[in-house]
Amino acid sequence: MSLLEIHNLHASIGGKEILRGIDLTINPGEIHAVMGPNGAGKSTLSAILTGNPAYTVTEGSILYKGKDLLAMPPEQRSWEGIFLSFQYPVEIPGVSMVNFMRTAVNEHRKYNNQPALSATEFLRLMREKRSVVQLDNKLANRSVNEGFSGGEKKRNEIFQMAMLEPTLSILDETDSGLDVDALRIVSDGVNRLKSAERASIVITHYQKLLEYIEPQFVHIVYKGRIVENGGPELANRIFAEGFDWVKEKAE
């Protein structure tokens, strides 16, 4: 069974249609890169998959593990294993990362009928996962994303991903604003989660991340539709030639 099946997805924000018929199937173990010029609808796709209430689905369907994804509230999608690494992670003043993550992890466990982790167990888990993305202990004790640099915020996203061990992870331009070292750390974090059961959608503009993460499938989104499908060679053509040929072909 496919992990994710998107059929003829149309979606809008504030009455403006952004997605105009997306079809995409993702199987367990696959990594898909989604590329496209600015405003094509890439981030809207990640918002729809995670149930952001600012967006409205006007047509189409999404099956996730065979279930109707659109019927699930955002938190249930998270419990079912969908994770979004946000393009712009928000700050939550006064809420420590430890408290935030412990709440999140235990809500997941509750959904899966597992007992809540004790403080000691949780801190051990946190220490282990923190080292994956080399996130400083000081950051873990600070309020969620508050006073984090751009790079730290992105590493913090991957740290949360490592904590929650999602089945389907969506990386929305996680690489933008990262220096080469941070990019390697982030990619390492993503690669460690690779398995035959899990899948990823990587939204990016840059070649570097795809060198580290190596997607098997590449999709080009333009004006709310997937206009090109291919393998890594498609990404290479985009990096070499840009999107103009895609636009011309689509028009």
Binding site: E75, V90, F100, M101, T103
Partner: peptide
């Protein structure tokens, strides 16, 4: 945005 961020992490 804060609310949605929490929701996305499984916090209702």
């Amino acid at each position: 945005d804060q609310l949605f961020y929490c929701n996305q992490r499984g916090i209702g």
